[in-house]
Computed example of a mutant assay.
Amino acid sequence: MRKKSKQVYYSLFCKWQESGQRKATFAAAEGIPKQTFYYWCKKFDTDSAPSTSPPPFSIIPMDHIAASPVARISYPSGICVELFGAVDVATVRELVG
């Protein structure tokens, strides 16, 4: 069996959402292993941010501070925290730890 690309599974995911069917029923009708379809559905559900909840972080305009960050922390989840101005070592440890 040939592997399908992420784009193909995303297209199937969107088609399933519009169908109103259960995941297992849809996967069987499309000839996709149920476990594989469940995996991709979970992946696409976590990739898209919920539209009703506010973002966990927001940008705070700071006109009086230098335009370039002095430190940047990038988390595996894709969240990036940039620190401007004087950086407190204890705060950095708390964010990294």
Rank of each mutant, 00 (worst) to 15 (best):
G20E: 04
S19H: 07
Q17S: 05
A27E: 07
L12G: 00
P76G: 07
T91F: 06
S58V: 14
Q17A: 02
A71W: 13
Q21E: 01
S74H: 14
S48L: 15
L12Q: 05
A71R: 13
S11D: 12
A66S: 12
R2M: 02
D45F: 03
T52F: 09
A24Q: 15
F57R: 04
H64T: 02
T46Y: 03
P56A: 13
F26R: 01
Q17P: 03
C14P: 01
K3D: 07
D45L: 09
G85A: 10
G31I: 09
A29E: 11
Q17M: 15
G78T: 01
V81A: 04
L95M: 09
S11M: 05
T91R: 03
S74T: 15
C14H: 04
K4N: 01
C14V: 01
R72W: 04
I79N: 10
G97M: 02
S51L: 07
V96C: 08
A24Y: 15
C80R: 08
F84C: 10
E82P: 01
C14E: 11
P69K: 09
W40T: 00
T36R: 07
I32H: 00
A86V: 06
E94Q: 09
V96K: 04
V8F: 07
A27F: 06
M1A: 13
I65K: 05
R72H: 04
I65V: 08
K23C: 06
A27P: 06
S77W: 07
H64S: 06
D63N: 05
L12H: 05
F57T: 10
V87W: 15
P55H: 08
R93L: 15
S48I: 12
P56C: 13
L83N: 02
E18S: 09
E82M: 05
Q17C: 09
S48M: 14
C14I: 04
Y75T: 12
V81K: 04
R72S: 11
L83T: 05
S11V: 05
A71Q: 11
G85S: 08
L83G: 07
V70T: 13
T52W: 14
R72T: 15
R93E: 15
D45C: 00
K3T: 09
G31T: 05
A27W: 03
Q21M: 04
F26K: 03
S19G: 06
E18T: 12
R2D: 08
M62P: 03
T36M: 10
A29Y: 06
T25C: 07
V81G: 02
K15N: 07
P61W: 13
F26G: 01
P55N: 06
D63F: 07
D88I: 06
I32M: 03
A24G: 12
Y75Q: 08
A66F: 15
C80M: 11
M1T: 13
P55Q: 06
Y10K: 10
I60F: 12
S11Q: 11
M1K: 13
T91M: 02
K6S: 12
